[in-house]
Simulated scan of single mutants.
Amino acid sequence: MRILVINPGSTSTKIAVYEDEKPILLHSITHSADELAVYDAITEQQDFRRNLVIKELHRANIPVKFDAVIGRGGLVKPIAGGVYEINEQMLNDTLHGCVMHNHACNLGCLIAHEIAITIPNCRAFIADPGVVDELSPLARISGSPLMPRICIWHALNQRAIARRYAREIGKRYEDLNLIICHLGGGISVAAHEHGKAIDTNNALDGEGPFSPERAGSLPAADLIRLCFSGKYTEKQLLKRIAGKAGLTAHLGTNNMKEIQERIKNGDKQAQLITDAMIYHTAKQIAAEGAVLCGNVDAILLTGGMAHSDYITNELRRRIGYLAPVYCFPGENEMEALALNALSVLKGTSKAQIYQ
């Protein structure tokens, strides 16, 4: 089975071609700020990015003939985890109905569908998008009935890492209790109980620890006062929640290598803010230990910042008392998407219907 994988990010489009479990192409197409500046909305980039994907396939001498195209899922309705066949309802919700944010992940299903319909007998999927919602009833309740808790998190990578860890120890994901922390541009921490993420934060919209690009949880009354201060527009304030927040707001950059170099050179402010991010992340991990009543088989750290020994060692120092801590640096998203599509093509799992 030949599978095309498409994973759009804010400044890149990652693509991969798999023959069964074997990758025969892995490539990241970088988009400059000038290239993207001409588009008001991210969904307007669809044709531009699709054409670059096709161009890269031609450059690599790979025929545009696939059994499936799978894209990174977007911010549609809250859904259960798994693989979904792209349908008209999903396309409509991505373009018009449910897009809460101008986020690049919304391009995944649009481009996958557009390429797949040009290929005979080719199916189009998404898998484990960031809106996967398996929260327990208790987790949904906030202190205001006007604002029930929702989750937007790194579902695809977290579930892939959970399954990988389970395979490595000879167990099933569904038999384990895990706390998984994705350390990326946003930070999501989830309590996985027997194969379901029963509690996790809204890592995009302002909840949990702050991160390189996200504000995380903020003092509510101060935020309301700021909204009515007249100093900022709604668009500017939303950027202060996601985009120009966290390390970016404090230190002027989201580049951890640059920040760590500044720390080595004696920058005390960079040290303080980085340590504060680690502190609040550890606190969130410990909170998920309470969700699982202390019955935690392992804590898994993943995402780009898990490459940093300093960050992972400091987290381990603070939360190692809860359970053994294991690191899986980087993201496993391309392989996870390919294997999800392959499982449907081979009949070992069934694609769900988006409604």
Rank of each mutant, 00 (worst) to 15 (best):
Y84M: 07
A68K: 03
M90F: 04
G73I: 12
E88W: 03
V83P: 05
I79M: 07
V83Y: 06
R72A: 08
V64C: 06
P78F: 10
L91F: 00
H96N: 01
Q89T: 15
A80D: 06
L91C: 02
L95F: 07
G82W: 10
D93R: 02
Q89H: 11
H96Y: 01
R72K: 14
M90R: 02
A68P: 11
Q89S: 09
L75T: 03
L75R: 08
A80G: 12
Y84N: 11
K77T: 13
L75A: 07
E85S: 15
N87A: 05
V69S: 09
H96D: 00
Y84D: 03
G82F: 15
V76I: 15
I86H: 04
N87F: 04
G82D: 09
V69K: 13
N92F: 02
G81Y: 05
V69Y: 07
L95H: 08
E85F: 11
K77V: 12
V64D: 15
E88D: 09
I79W: 00
G81R: 13
G71E: 08
V64N: 05
V76G: 06
Q89N: 03
N87M: 00
A80W: 01
V76P: 05
K65G: 12
K65W: 07
F66E: 02
H96R: 02
V76R: 10
G73P: 14
P78S: 13
G74L: 14
G81S: 15
Q89E: 06
Y84K: 05
P63N: 08
D67S: 09
F66N: 00
R72F: 11
G81F: 02
G74E: 08
N87K: 05
P63C: 06
L75K: 00
R72D: 08
P78V: 14
P78C: 15
E88N: 05
H96V: 01
M90Y: 01
E88Q: 06
G73F: 14
M90H: 02
K65I: 13
G73T: 14
F66I: 02
G74C: 10
H96L: 03
D67G: 06
L91R: 04
I86A: 03
G82V: 11
L75F: 06
N87D: 02
N92A: 07
G71C: 15
E88S: 06
P78M: 13
R72V: 07
G82Y: 11
G71L: 13
D67A: 06
Y84P: 09
V76E: 04
I86K: 04
V64P: 13
E85V: 15
